[in-house]
């Protein structure tokens, strides 16, 4: 996946000279995950800039650069280091267009690794997408395959407004796929149905799509036909795709790595309750990380929901409606 991300950068920088990359170690080093590998050599130090070690500066300067006509793609090295940048993202990036009635705007992409599962040190494995989804004026995207990472990143860079681009760290090198470097973007408002099924809808995103698809295989062996939806764009949510699926299956399970309390799963459950309650055959279930700190890596796979938990939730949902 990480090569697909670098490839998308390369395509767009080649075709739009307003696109510049900034972040810590994005230049000669190509990013700590190599998501910007080779870009500085190809496009030069002006367009691929190593910034000082200061997240607020990365986000704040991206605001200034975007307001003056550039299309910055900023990298935050890990999601746990996002917090100093939030002031700039929430107070300015998300609302500069609004505040100036469209006079200035912020076509910025802020990329960052998302989630755990890579045996990283403390603060390197956060999944706090809900914080970002709560902010008006931001789009939040989380791809789950190399092809979707390529297409969605192109769309994010081309979008006229700020996009938070969350890259599942454990998929960076775990998933390999041939991706055509054709510059074709994917829509930023559409969820992807990864597997069709008539019994239960499972909505998930990012790295959890891997566990969820394995759970769906397991469920198939037990006679349960699960439909798996990759939300992909976490804000705004593609309500239509979810409701259409729940309309067919009558059952919903939401799976996410992030903590449960006020997680995005709650929003999805509320949307379905508001718009499709009468289609439901069973209560909505959530399979999520726990409401505790993401543990250091010896326990991280105990925190991240596994196939077993997803299978059990789907089975319980089926049992509830019999």
């Amino acid at each position: 996946m990480v090569e697909a991300i670098a490839m998308a950068h390369g395509w767009e920088m080649q075709h739009d000279e307003r696109v510049v990359v900034l972040g810590q170690d994005v230049g000669a080093n190509g990013g700590v995950f190599r998501a910007t590998l080779g870009l500085q050599q190809r496009f030069g130090g002006d367009r691929v800039q190593d910034t000082p070690l200061a997240e607020a500066a990365i986000a704040g300067m991206a605001v200034g650069m975007a307001a003056q006509g550039l299309r910055p793609v900023a990298e935050i090295q890990f999601m746990g280091f996002l917090y100093p940048a939030l002031d700039q993202i929430v107070n300015h990036m998300s609302r500069l267009r609004y505040r100036t009635r469209g006079r200035l705007s912020c076509p910025v992409v802020v990329r960052m690794p998302h989630g755990g599962g890579i045996h990283a040190p403390e603060h390197h494995s956060e999944s706090v997408e809900t914080m970002l989804c709560h902010v008006p004026g931001l789009r939040v995207v989380c791809p789950s395959s190399p092809a979707r990472a390529y297409g969605l990143l192109l769309a994010a860079i081309r979008d006229p407004d700020p996009v938070m681009f969350l890259e599942p760290a454990r998929l960076y090198r775990a998933v390999r796929q041939d991706v055509e470097d054709d510059g074709r973007a994917l829509p930023l408002d559409t969820a992807f149905t990864l597997r069709e099924g008539g019994d239960v809808t499972i909505v998930t995103w990012g790295a959890m799509t891997a566990e969820t698809l394995r759970a769906a295989d397991e469920l198939a062996g037990r006679g349960i036909d699960a439909e798996v939806i990759d939300l992909a764009t976490l804000s705004p949510i593609d309500t239509e795709t979810i409701l259409a699926s729940v309309g067919r299956t009558g059952r919903l399970v939401v799976v996410h790595e992030a903590a449960r309390n006020v997680g995005l799963g709650a929003e999805i459950a509320a949307l379905v309750a508001e718009h499709a309650l009468y289609d439901l055959l069973a209560p909505i279930r959530r399979v999520t990380g726990y409401d505790t700190v993401m543990p250091l890596y010896r326990l991280e796979m105990d925190y991240i929901p596994g196939v077993e938990r997803i299978v059990a939730a789907a089975e319980r949902t089926m049992a509830d409606s019999r």
């Binding site: 259409a244 009468y278 289609d279």
Partner: peptide, 10 residues
């Protein structure tokens, strides 16, 4: 609502 299974009892 489109998408909802019309055979399903609501």
């Amino acid at each position: 609502r489109h998408g909802a299974d019309s055979r399903r009892v609501r």
